[in-house]
Amino acid sequence: MKTRNGWVEIDGVRYDHDVVVHTDRSVTKRHKKPSKRLKSTYGHTPLSGVELGFLIHEQPAILYIGTGQYGDLPVTPDAEDVFRHYETVVRPTPDIVDLLKEEPRPFVAILHVNC
């Protein structure tokens, strides 16, 4: 796994958009459409609680949130409320990518690839 501004590479596949790494290690595009309505409030589409409903089905041992190359992805209070149900690490995406390389437990990672 590696990342630079604008992309993340997972298992040899480069993604130029935000991704979710699921507990089965599959990768899907982050569906941020539910959070877009908050863009004017945060100046950037934040990670909001409405995006995190899928976690109840996955039950990760740990949740990783990659907040972008420079850590600028806003996180809403309702997302932080969801975090309280999981062991959660919120850091810039490069830091998260490094942690994921060594993580043996089932995890979910939401990785922002810009800012």
Rank of each mutant, 00 (worst) to 15 (best):
V89M: 10
G6H: 03
K32N: 13
P46V: 04
D95I: 03
P104C: 09
N5K: 14
R25I: 03
V21P: 05
V21Y: 08
V113A: 10
G68F: 00
L52F: 11
L47N: 00
A109V: 02
D18M: 02
D72P: 01
L111M: 12
G49V: 05
V82D: 09
R30I: 10
E51P: 04
Q69A: 13
R25N: 11
V8M: 11
S40F: 07
P104S: 08
E103R: 04
P60Y: 04
F83R: 02
V21R: 06
Y86N: 06
G49E: 06
K101N: 10
G71I: 00
T45W: 00
V113R: 02
E103M: 09
S40K: 11
Y42T: 01
G49R: 04
Q59M: 05
I56Q: 15
V50Y: 03
A79F: 11
G68R: 01
E103F: 07
V20A: 07
V113C: 12
V19P: 01
A61C: 09
A61D: 13
E103K: 05
R25C: 10
G68H: 02
Y86Q: 09
E102T: 11
R37S: 15
P34V: 11
E9M: 09
D72L: 12
D11E: 15
Q59S: 12
T41R: 15
R91P: 00
K101R: 14
K101M: 10
V21C: 06
E80L: 11
L111Y: 04
I10V: 11
Q69R: 08
K2Y: 14
K2W: 14
I62S: 04
E102R: 15
R37G: 13
R30H: 09
P34E: 11
T41Q: 14
V108P: 01
D11K: 09
V82L: 12
V108Y: 00
G53P: 07
V13S: 08
V21E: 04
R105M: 09
D95M: 07
E87C: 10
T88L: 09
D98N: 13
D81C: 08
T93Q: 04
E51C: 08
V13K: 13
A61W: 05
N114T: 11
G49P: 07
Y42S: 01
P94E: 04
K29T: 14
V113P: 06
H44M: 12
V20R: 00
H85E: 11
T28P: 10
D98Q: 12
V8F: 08
K2V: 15
D78F: 05
K36D: 15
N114F: 01
A79K: 02
T45K: 03
H17L: 10
D18Y: 02
H17D: 13
L73C: 01
D81Q: 12
D78R: 03
S48C: 13
T45P: 04
T76E: 03
V108F: 03
G53A: 14
E9T: 02
K39L: 03
E87Q: 15
T28V: 15
K33T: 15
Y86V: 10
D72A: 14
F54S: 04
L47Y: 03
K101F: 13
F54W: 12
V108R: 00
I65P: 00
Q69C: 12
G68S: 09
Y86F: 14
V90G: 01
S48T: 09
H22T: 05
F107G: 04
R30M: 14
G43D: 00
V75W: 03
V50S: 13
K33R: 15
L52A: 06
V89P: 01
H31Y: 12
I56D: 14
